[in-house]
Design a protein around this nucleic acid. Structure first.
Length: 766
DNA sequence: CGTTACACTTAGAACTAGATAA
DNA sequence: TTATCTAGTTCTAAGTGTAACG
């Protein structure tokens, strides 16, 4: 990936979210209206095109192509075909498994394949969880063995064998110990085993174990159910609500909803018409009939006293004594300990969000039509529990019952409920450090690496398709080009009026691009300006190939601004096509691939071997930044940005002065030493020299920090680091340059990427 | 074959705790 | 010690993609 993937910084400077920019908001609102009006016409158009011209040809041609591809694909999977006489599907899955576990360096000799999981419970049943699935895992194991032989023969080095042996030994020892002590670790603490080492060994390396057959997510799951939001605490009597200037006592229900609004009074949301309208409508539903008849206008409501009360509360919380704070902390820890973990297949795993979302006002992003609506309180009766049949089923709060308890091991969630704003389902799932998430993450990067192997072919193919006779194929090819080159998202269609008006590649409309046959000395420039996920603005001017440009002109012919640019395309068509090009390929794989490959390439380019550690880290951050820019990961500049920049600058100035002082001192010490020529003065010179060096280093560090921060003003690095960059690239880079991994990944990130930290060597190549 | 339901990943903002400055 | 700042954590909205449905 060369520099042309990294788009213009100018878009960063532009207002980036619609609702922060009135100009933008109005423009989009306006368009939304027009769009609705045109919808019918558009549908008619679609009807027409369906029945007209090339449609027949289209389908037959496609079928033909499809056949060819299937042939091709089958050929490549021949090797594994006979291994497991089962459905075609099964075979494909097997392959997937194989390729994604290609990098495992464990030894075959590890017969059972399970590295003695720590025992969580003592019931005999539990022991069977890993022992019994042997049969299931057999078909999975074989491809992996092949794998070792086929792909990574060089990896079976003596060193690795030794390592694996040692590891196995340690594990065995460890498990023996665990069997004795069970949950009570302390018992053995006293004996010779070194504490820190033990800690390390206790970490379960799921990545060295067999995977389940696809579809099955777990064999045993036990948890305590969700933690519900604390019940509403009515306001003290002295906190008043005023309507039309007069004190008014609200019913508990109405009051609760009022407090939601009061708590947001300082937020821009509460000034927005849609927000207020939605809030008021839902609030009235919670009122008694008297309240309803009195309170008829939101603008006559005065929440300021309530708001002040909450501010005072926050303040008071901050001022709490150490003991009180400690108490709260302990309570949180207790909650976490009790509800924050589950047992999945013999391992205790952290749950990501075990607390049910509390009621409140819906905060949609961007210009969301539903902002301000009441998010109702979730009750046990709304909750579906998912766990093992033979687990201890969590008890609903006294006097309540669950909506349902099911035992579905084809899904990963523990708890679900339906949310009332969009009617979508919310889930409680495991932490990113868990096996179930980690495995998936790893697999994601393996898919992206497979794309690396065939991306050239795919690129040639879509370039060919720009010339296709079929409109559909051309549109698909141009869209794919954008997804590849610009890392755009797929762009599923969304229900109008239900969400903010945002688009991705396939849902781009004519109004989102401008064509410039020539701009600033460049030919065939496409100017993108649209709102993407989270209503983050994407603004970019990109020179494209002439064919793409001509195609875009063609796609835009006779269309209104609010018409779809790719009217014959949607994500489903695109993904089906991608699936034919490569097993497991979907639009989002391109983002992962391009992000990771860009990081790798940028790291190569930017890392200067002679730099010290802080400078190398700056290089890393710059590489990371290149990816964030590519993926358009933006953030609102922190409110305190200017100030913190100034602070840093003054620190730098102070350091400079200090350096000057130190240099002066060194000079005089040198002069002194010249005259005196004794040991003591020589030593003084040495120590002054060191001081100067130390200060220089500190100054350098600060300056690097300032650069880094400035460059990061509106760019969010976290998203790409967490979701797009193969962690093994970073781990390898750290190993290669002797950078401690802690400088790149914090504790949480290290937990999430434990698999990569454990397995990637310095020579890892994405 | 389009639509909807569902499951899961990706996303930026808000909040919080603890480090650092005053 | 207290105030301030920031990195890390939590929160939940908003995407993607697949499978079931009609």
């Amino acid at each position: 990936m060369s520099g042309d993937q990294l788009h213009n910084d100018s878009q960063i400077e532009a207002d980036f979210r619609a609702n922060d920019s009135h100009k933008h908001k109005d423009k989009h609102k306006d368009r939304e209206h027009r769009h609705k009006e045109h919808k019918k016409d558009k549908e008619k158009d679609r009807e027409k095109s369906k029945h007209s011209n090339s449609e027949h040809k289209d389908s037959s041609e496609k079928k033909h192509k499809d056949k060819e591809k299937t042939k091709h694909k089958d050929g490549s999977s021949e090797k594994h075909k006979d291994k497991h006489k089962d459905k075609d599907k099964e075979k494909r899955k097997e392959e997937k498994m194989k390729s994604s576990s290609g990098d495992i360096k464990i030894k075959k000799e590890k017969e059972n394949g399970f590295s003695s999981p720590p025992r969580i419970k003592d019931e005999p049943d539990d022991d069977g969880f890993y022992a019994s699935p042997k049969e299931d895992s057999k078909p999975l194991k074989r491809p992996r063995e092949d794998d070792d032989a086929d792909y990574k023969p060089k990896k079976i080095k003596t060193e690795d064998i030794k390592k694996a042996k040692k590891r196995k030994q340690e594990e065995e020892e460890d498990s023996k110990a665990k069997k004795i002590k069970s949950k009570d670790k302390k018992v053995l603490d006293a004996d010779k085993r070194k504490k820190p080492k033990k800690e390390e060994e206790q970490k379960w390396k799921w990545w060295e174990e067999e995977r389940y057959p696809e579809g099955i997510k777990w064999k045993f799951l036990e948890h305590k159910g969700p933690v519900f939001a604390p019940p509403y605490e009515p306001l003290p009597e002295n906190v008043k609500f005023y309507y039309d200037g007069k004190v008014m006592k609200l019913s508990t229900k109405a009051e609760e909803v009022a407090t939601f609004f009061a708590k947001m009074l300082d937020h821009e949301y509460t000034t927005k018409e849609i927000f207020r309208k939605n809030f008021f409508k839902d609030w009235r539903k919670e009122m008694t009939s008297e309240e309803k008849s009195t309170i008829t206008s939101l603008s006559k409501c005065d929440f300021t006293h309530m708001s002040q009360y909450f501010k005072a509360q926050t303040e008071a919380r901050k001022q709490m004594s150490k003991e009180e704070k400690q108490k709260i902390k302990e309570e949180n820890e207790r909650l976490l300990k009790e509800y924050g973990y589950c047992v999945m297949d013999n391992h205790k795993e952290r749950i990501a969000n075990f607390k049910i979302e509390p009621p409140g006002l819906f905060r949609g992003r961007g210009n969301h039509p539903k902002m301000g609506m009441l998010k109702r309180r979730i009750m046990p009766e709304d909750i579906i529990i998912n766990c093992s049949k033979d687990s201890k089923i969590p008890a609903p709060p006294p006097g309540h019952k669950w909506k349902e308890v099911r035992h579905d091991n084809k899904v990963t969630w523990l708890v679900s409920w339906t949310e009332n704003i969009q009617g979508s389902i919310k889930y409680i799932m495991l932490n990113p450090s868990s096996r179930i998430k980690g495995e998936k993450d790893w697999q994601k990067y393996e898919t992206a690496r497979r794309l690396k192997k065939c991306v050239d072919k795919i690129r040639n193919q879509y370039r060919e398709d720009w010339k296709s006779k079929e409109m559909k194929v051309r549109q698909r090819a141009v869209a794919l080009y954008f997804i590849d080159k610009l890392a755009l998202r797929a762009g599923n269609e969304k229900e109008e009026g239900e969400t903010a008006d945002t688009v991705g590649c396939c849902s781009l409309r004519v109004e989102h691009i401008k064509l410039h046959p020539e701009l600033d000395g460049q030919e065939y420039v496409v100017e993108f300006d649209f709102l993407g996920k989270d209503s983050i603005r994407y603004y970019n001017k990109v020179p494209v190939e002439k064919r793409v440009f001509k195609n875009l002109q063609l796609f835009m012919e006779n269309k209104q601004p609010e018409d779809d640019l790719f009217d014959r395309l949607n994500t489903s068509i695109l993904n089906k096509h991608l699936q034919d090009l490569m097993e497991g390929l979907t639009a989002k794989v391109f983002r992962t691939y391009n992000a990771s490959i860009t990081l790798q390439q940028q790291l190569k380019e930017l890392t200067n071997p002679d730099d010290n550690i802080p400078a190398k880290i700056l290089s890393y951050n710059r590489a990371n930044r290149a990816v964030a820019i590519l993926c358009n990961h933006q953030r609102a500049p922190p409110k305190t940005f200017e100030k913190s920049m100034m602070n840093l600058q003054s620190k730098i100035d102070a350091k400079k002065e200090q350096l000057a002082d130190a240099r002066r001192e060194l000079k005089s010490a040198k002069a002194d030493a010249k005259v005196r020529r004794d040991e003591k003065s020589k030593k003084t010179v040495e120590s002054k020299k060191k001081a100067v060096q130390r200060i220089e280093e500190q100054l350098m560090k600060l300056e690097v920090q300032a650069t880094d921060r400035e460059e990061n003003k509106q760019i969010a690095l976290g998203t790409s680091k967490l979701n797009y960059l193969d962690p093994r690239i970073s781990v390898a880079w750290c190993k290669k340059w002797g950078i401690p991994i802690e400088k790149i990944y914090n504790k949480t990130q290290r937990e999430k990427f434990a698999w990569a930290i454990d397995m990637a060597e310095e020579d890892y190549e994405f």
